[in-house]
């Protein structure tokens, strides 16, 4: 159809306004992180001083966040990939029930989940004080994304026929899983893995409740710096966070296009 002139201009303006709304603060924050004095603006010159201060103050949180994200990834791979295969294999009432229960944490606010975990396990002091406590929360929250990504790809490649092929050649169920299922579900596993790492690194709702002074993650540190540090340091810290997360988001976007059946993206403010 021939676009209506006024409609076109209005749509363009709305689109550009939305893009500006999303991008301008992000760019401003990146710039502020390397500006000597944000209130004087760029005239004050560029500096890496704030980045250095953030690394001195908060490098522990960055390391812990990466460690927890990788740990979460490991656990979701081990728990999720085999289970996704088992759930996708025979759509029965039981498998639907399991799927529903396992994906429920996505629908329940992180705050409520964290509260429940604290009430149930807060008494186990060693567990409560260790980063494992946060890891459990992150696994709970990200597992559905891994499950869905893998199940979607398993449904798309008709893995059942390939398994029968391998079985006819003498492969045991376990051999079929590792030789045929996993290699052919690689796309979904990778998409799920990117999602899990991205969500884990940015997770705040659960983590804020679950963390202790000794187990601060990057987003917890961010909240801390927003509340108590000067704007430049908060910005520099945010910049470091962007450096970690933007490549993951870009990779995720590329995979999202390659994988039309990938699940809806998640996360919560």
């Amino acid at each position: 159809m021939i676009p209506h002139r006024l409609t076109f201009v209005l749509q363009l303006l709305v689109t550009l306004a939305c893009a500006a709304f999303l991008l301008v603060p992000a760019l401003a924050s990146m710039l502020a992180g390397v500006t000597a004095n944000y209130f004087q603006g760029l005239r004050s010159g560029l500096t890496l001083r704030w980045i250095g201060e953030v690394l001195a103050l908060y490098s522990g949180t960055i390391g812990l966040s990466i460690a927890i994200a990788l740990g979460t990834l490991g656990v979701t791979l081990v728990l999720g990939v085999p289970a996704a295969w088992a759930l996708a294999r025979k759509p029965s009432r039981l498998s639907r029930l399991v799927e529903e229960v396992v994906t429920l944490p996505v629908a329940i606010p992180g705050l409520a989940l964290a509260l429940a975990l604290i009430l149930a396990y807060g008494g186990f002091r060693a567990f409560r004080m260790s980063p494992l406590f946060i890891l459990v929360g992150h696994v709970l929250y990200t597992l559905p994304f891994m499950l869905r990504a893998v199940m979607a790809v398993l449904a798309a490649v008709d893995v059942k026929a390939l398994e029968e092929g391998a079985a006819s050649l003498g492969a045991s169920p376990l051999q079929r899983f590792f030789h045929v299922v996993v290699p052919n579900a690689k796309g979904g596993i990778l998409a799920g893995a990117l999602m899990v790492v991205t969500l884990s690194i940015g997770e705040f709702n659960l983590t804020w409740m679950l963390h202790t002074p000794l187990t601060k993650t990057l987003p917890v540190g961010l909240a801390d710096s927003y509340a108590s540090m000067r704007l430049e340091i908060a910005s520099a810290y945010t910049l470091i966070f962007f450096v970690l997360i933007v490549p993951l988001l870009v990779a995720l976007q590329m995979f999202g296009r390659a994988l039309p059946a990938a699940p809806a993206k998640g996360g919560r403010p």
Partner: peptide, 25 residues
């Protein structure tokens, strides 16, 4: 890309974006 990139910014960071946009400074 620009419109969908902030997809997984956590809430705290989004809060900071709003402060930079409409905060005191």
């Amino acid at each position: 890309s620009a419109l969908t990139l902030p997809l997984a910014f956590p809430g705290v960071v989004v809060g900071f974006m709003i402060i930079l946009l409409a905060g005191r400074q």
